[in-house]
Design a protein around this nucleic acid. Structure first.
Lengths: 216, 216
DNA sequence: CGGTGAATTGATGTCAGTCAAGGAGGGTGG
DNA sequence: CCACCCTCCTTGACTGACATCAATTCACCG
């Protein structure tokens, strides 16, 4: 992969990575840090598409289609591996296994979006919050980021609210409920699951089948 | 592409194409007809992920990941072009431009799902229905399927309801409202847009930028 | 012409949104 | 070092958009 790499980019906490409507000349892979994909309506309403974690691919849309339809920003300081858009095609002709990895990531993303859609369309607030916490925990766990039962979850409550299609107020109250039930506790950027069993029941989330991720 | 093709499949109206949880040995391209991707929760609640139209790729998840996480069924009689999963890899080594097409389709799908997510998370019922009708109309239009101002839209109201995260009843009432406003009329499987301008305003939908789709 | 699934409509109920007001922590500058 | 802001989190009271319930009506079909 190294031969297609243009460089490394460090974005400070809160900084923009890709902008909705823009054509970026770059494609990124997240090496470290956490971010947020989001989309805005004309009147300012925001939808968080998903939470970005290490290993994610950013900018596929702008590499292939005319422009991004969502923005990406850094929630914490992030380190990104940068690839040039205009060399994207070379990947297919010269490094088919890399091209395969990209499709793999795209397929995984598509799956995750389908799950999110189901959360927003058909789950209650409690179920949504539970499923979201479970997903973050699992992903962190897969990335070996869980230390002594605590997963990093550096986003704000309003980010979660916008990801789940709920108001901040109701998200807050729902988080409290999960805390009172001693199921899960997300405070100060740290997520702790107290009752995995119960959380799964509430979340009605797809069982995660350990997908072997191709090295990138 | 022909060399990777295994055959052609015709599925009758209402028939299954791919099942949630199954590992399919096939990957499909839709040649003709309309379908539905959907996902179920344990208690039977259903979420329609999206509407399937000619040109769509089906089964990417099962080709790359361990299994499908949603089902696909035929809404009308469908004709599919079938590819073998176990020859998927050959595409990358022997037909890079085809592999590129697949990523292109995946990127477009990802974009569409992001838009759906925004609809469900942040739009009112009226906005959602308007956006959904607009999207169906546009896609049909791109496929040259609009005849004298009428686009085919063979799904049931309950399918649209499940796609938008609304109840059937409310979807029905909302459709009526759009009809009374003489904005759009979806009856008997036919969609007619009376006031494109107004529909766009209500929908707050992303402007479609004519993406050149690679031939497949 | 009964039977079945879809569309339609009105009445009633509720989950989550909005409004409004505090707290709690973390910078900044006087 | 403390007064000030800011941003985020928290909580209670009220409201409203959409769900649910319950009939019809319609269209198609054997």
């Amino acid at each position: 992969m190294l031969e297609f790499r243009v460089g490394e980019l460090v974005v400070e906490k809160g900084g923009p990575i890709l902008d909705e409507g823009a054509e970026s000349p770059h494609l990124y892979t997240v090496l470290d840090g956490f971010g947020l994909r989001s989309k805005f309506l004309a009147d300012g309403r925001r939808q968080v598409i998903n939470f970005v974690m290490p290993g994610d691919l950013l900018g596929l849309q702008s590499a292939l289609l005319s422009e991004m339809r969502h923005s990406v920003e850094a929630t914490t300081k992030m380190t990104l591996c940068v690839f040039a858009r205009d060399r994207f095609w070379e990947l297919f002709t010269e490094a088919p296994s890399r091209a395969y990895s990209i499709v793999w990531l795209a397929a995984r993303e598509e799956r995750a979006l389908g799950e999110s859609l189901t959360m927003l369309g058909r789950k209650t607030a409690l179920e949504r919050v539970a499923a979201a916490l479970q997903r973050v925990y699992r992903r962190a766990s897969d990335l070996q980021l869980v230390k002594s039962g605590v997963a990093p979850m550096p986003w704000r409550q309003s980010d979660l609210a916008d990801a789940l299609g709920l108001s901040i107020v109701h998200t807050n109250k729902t988080l409290r409920k999960l805390r009172e039930l001693t199921v899960a506790d997300w405070t100060n950027g740290s997520l702790r699951i107290h009752d995995e069993e119960r959380l799964s029941e509430i979340a009605d989330f797809d069982p995660e089948i350990g997908e072997r991720r191709p090295l990138f």
